[in-house]
Nucleic acid binder design. Sequence first.
DNA 1: GAGTGGTCTAGACCACCAA
DNA 2: TGGTGGTCTAGACCACTCC
Lengths: 232, 232
Amino acid sequence: MSPAPKASYHAIKAEVLERIRSQVWPPGAMLPGDVVLAREFGCARSTLTRAMQELAHDGILERKRKAGTRVRPTPERHARLSIPLVRDEVTASGAQYSYQLLRSTLRAAPAWLSTRLDIAPGTQMLFLECLHSGDATPFQYEQRWINLNAVAAQEVDFTQISPNAWLVAHMPLSNAELVFSAAPANDDVAGHLDVPLGSPVFVKERVTWFDGAPLTHTRMFYHAGYCVVSQI
Amino acid sequence: MSPAPKASYHAIKAEVLERIRSQVWPPGAMLPGDVVLAREFGCARSTLTRAMQELAHDGILERKRKAGTRVRPTPERHARLSIPLVRDEVTASGAQYSYQLLRSTLRAAPAWLSTRLDIAPGTQMLFLECLHSGDATPFQYEQRWINLNAVAAQEVDFTQISPNAWLVAHMPLSNAELVFSAAPANDDVAGHLDVPLGSPVFVKERVTWFDGAPLTHTRMFYHAGYCVVSQI
DNA sequence: GAGTGGTCTAGACCACCAA
DNA sequence: TGGTGGTCTAGACCACTCC
């Protein structure tokens, strides 16, 4: 598939992977030292090292000083899961994206939220409800809490820009925790997504942090056909 | 949190991230060239390059020859999603893991499957149904198709070892495509997971490839409380 | 064509940790 | 404490791509 990288460290990575797949170096096996391997491949140690470090970074190998390099017994594979904007998800399917702010109020943080975000109980927060649609069909219903102590969002007009789009632009490089689950639609969700009460909906929950402070908590509800795709 | 890496390329990464967060280099901004930055940081160009390449690999920066380096307008964040074995998921919650093979038959691949795996329609495949439980409570119900043309699994006794555990051990470094979704429990699923008909279940679908050949297709159904957690 | 990032090298010193 | 990987350097040449 990929057009055969010419760089020698790429070639080395490929060769090492091939030896693992063909059980020359089975899971758990010890590899020769960097110096030896570099001599075998006829390259500088730094080149060999770069290949090995990337494989270690990818969870294929395990490197320890003095102990040497070994194939991870159970390769710790990680799926790379991109985090799309709702707008992009909708337009990618060819539909016309539209966004609607359903509610915007100040509310005291409920107990579960203050625990989840590790903030003082009863803190005043901005609570938003939004609906994202494709061709006038509800696509995602969103319940969002914004921590006004960490985000200067009081003056923002969220009828014009979705909270996610605004936050991405103004708070780059925040960290987040994602949770995916399945749940029955309650009154709110069923009404806004236009699905039967109790029918399965896909739920994403996301908590976003910036520099140690919680920024926002979001629950996103999708109609049943929705799915998340990822590659390993 | 992390104990302040001393390596200079780590320090450079941290400094660049800090400048992005503090809007010195806002999203979309152009950075000085590698040579200039290396002079500013007082290090060799290779050291600077390593830091920048890792940031580019992480989706923070965008590097192009001649064009230079810029901050990605919408940082393409990737969640790292580990792929656990069911056994580990169950025991992690403190429960006693048990596994049961419900069915093992040879069947012709249905149309949807041969399309999905890109194999000849009607190919004979091994079809398995498995139940994974924690403390005798159903945890995951699994429907699996195995491509016997790519996997020598005819002689394996899947009553003793779960197909996933066997495949992981015998087919290292395979690629996979993951799909998460929510669906209503049908007769099969409701019966095996012991949940009401039509109630929401979390579904994982996984297709595994090795060296271009499809190995196995799996649908995994979880009880409603289940969720997938991921960090960015 | 020229400027930028991509890669390689040879050598050096350092930091960690199993024996 | 010795061997292993981790990092840095100075310099070189290459490859891509924008102008």
